[in-house]
């Protein structure tokens, strides 16, 4: 078994309104920053012991499917690194 860290990044599907991101963008603009767009995301870092990086990724994907992301509004991405 090897220790891995799986990072699950959950983003809103294209076209789904992101009011928090819009509010954050407005706040940045009020501070004088110039930007074209801003998207927010949730990132989960999961430490787990697994036989291989593929195994760790598979388990993290199942976590995303079953809880971390809501398929109605979210896309997600999983990356794995050795801890």
């Amino acid at each position: 078994m090897t220790e891995f860290t799986a990072t699950v990044t959950v983003t809103l599907k294209h076209g789904v309104l992101d009011p928090e991101a819009e509010t954050t963008q407005q706040a940045l603009e009020r501070l004088g920053f110039e930007l074209q767009d801003l998207r927010s995301a949730d990132r989960f870092e999961i430490d787990l012991d697994a036989d291989s990086a593929d195994d760790a990724a598979e388990r993290a994907e199942e976590m995303a499917e079953r809880l971390l992301a809501n398929p109605t509004i979210h896309d997600y991405e999983v990356t794995v690194s050795e801890t």
């Binding site: 789904v16 309104l17 009011p19 928090e20 819009e22 509010t23 809501n70 109605t72 509004i73």
Partner: peptide, 17 residues
């Protein structure tokens, strides 16, 4: 109900945030 798939769709952050 929506999160458990009893009903379709999702209720998410208000447009006003």
């Amino acid at each position: 109900g929506c999160e458990s798939s009893l009903t379709p769709g999702a209720f998410t952050t208000n447009e006003s945030a």
